[in-house]
Amino acid sequence: MLASLVGFLGDFDLAEEAVQEAFAIAAERWPATGMPDRPGAWLVTTARNRAIDRVRRERAFAGKIHLLHTPEAAMDELDDTVIKDERLQLIFACCHPALPLDGQVALTLRALGGLDTAEIARAFLVSEETMKRRLSRAKAKIKATGIPFAVPAAHRLPDRLDAVLAVVYLIYNEGYRGRIDLGAEALRLGRLLAALLPGQPEAHGLLALMTIHHARRRARFRGDDLVLLDDQDRSLWDQRRIAEGRAMLDRAIALGGRGAYVVQAAIASLQARERIDWPQVAALYRRLAGLTGSAVVELNRAVALAQAGDPAGALRAVDRLGLDGYLYFHSTRGELLRRLGRGSEARAAYGRALELATSAPERRFLTRRLEQL
């Protein structure tokens, strides 16, 4: 609905408000009248009419008379596509290449991914205010340039794949932190993507990555408490699902996949073994850092170096990173300093991490670490 409405209204904020009003009207009327034969078309038409009413009220109707001539069956545009899942249709529609890649991803996460602005800001390692401005710029560009929002034709889908993969990946990351509903939805979308674009290795790589991580989800929490990889009960790992993820990884590699999601899936596969080859994990993180230029990847490489037996070298690598606002930067420093016997510095690092923690499991874990020092 949102993608369809933005396409002909040319105003993201107006479309969002109109969609909300249409759902409110449906929630009030449908229990009494029953659901219409085509609920999607009914909602789009109602939302469009609400938007037109608002334009009239704001005395700008004369300049937007074209809104009245929008086809009644707007949802038919979304129905006539090779993508049969509505959520995935809208993600492809919102990932419009006229916007910068980070704008596509952020706007789609905000509108369709189930993440609020603070969660999206955390995913991009920026402040909430910075993310608000980024979203506002993307919306303004849509309004100023009249970017058309529609599901692309089948031959255009690969052009939007990078942004769509990033959206699904970041939804899964938020789920990995404890929001199981988002994790399950990201997996569902990942399976659809791999089936929709069977020749795209990165789609298979992302699905492999999520599948292997998801296989360990029961062991990542004990009750409501976070459990680190070394302390996880491996009997709780879903070995069948891990095998499925490795088969997907093999498929991605057979297709020539050497990209970031394929490399991350290879790392996840190594970390799901009984005995983890940490030097090999560190080498893969080095390759991934070369592909992404990401400071967070460098942080993960430092963790692997420490696990391979070099906590001092790992700390030197971490201290070169400019990630002061990132929770896991400080918690990693705290752990490395603890291993090196530098208790007071470890307490300061864990204390800073605790200030940045937003979830209850993370806060409890960091509190316990501080108590143990």
Score class of each variant (00 low, 15 high):
P148R: 13
V303F: 11
D324E: 15
I171H: 02
V303D: 06
R38Q: 15
L189V: 01
A357N: 01
S4T: 13
D324Y: 04
R134A: 15
R273N: 02
A140S: 11
A195I: 01
Q239W: 06
E345M: 14
G325Q: 06
D102Y: 09
A265W: 01
Q104C: 05
A266R: 10
W42H: 05
H330V: 08
L209G: 06
Y261F: 15
T332M: 07
I65M: 05
R38F: 09
R364L: 04
L109V: 09
L229G: 06
V297Q: 13
R134Q: 11
D80G: 04
A47W: 05
D13Q: 12
E17Q: 15
R160V: 14
G205W: 00
M210H: 13
A268M: 03
A312E: 00
L2V: 03
Q280A: 15
A194M: 00
A98K: 12
L315V: 07
L366Q: 01
I180Y: 05
I276S: 04
L9G: 01
A32L: 14
L135F: 10
R320C: 10
G199N: 08
R50I: 09
R363T: 03
D324H: 05
R338V: 03
A243K: 11
L189N: 05
G341D: 02
R191D: 12
A74G: 12
R316L: 09
A295G: 11
F221G: 06
D231N: 13
P148I: 14
H330L: 07
R352Q: 11
Q239L: 14
R316T: 08
D310F: 11
H213Y: 15
P198D: 13
E335H: 13
Q280G: 14
I120C: 01
A254I: 01
A265L: 07
G40M: 09
H214A: 11
S235V: 07
R273F: 02
S136Q: 15
Q280S: 13
P201D: 03
A260I: 00
A203I: 00
S235P: 00
S4R: 11
A140D: 12
R369N: 06
V126D: 05
L161N: 10
T358C: 00
Q232T: 14
P158M: 07
C95I: 10
P39V: 15
V164N: 07
D225P: 04
V263T: 15
T46H: 11
I212Y: 12
R368M: 03
L157Q: 09
A153F: 10
G322V: 02
A312T: 00
V126F: 10
E128P: 03
L197V: 00
G223K: 07
K143T: 10
S331E: 12
A215E: 01
F221D: 05
A268L: 05
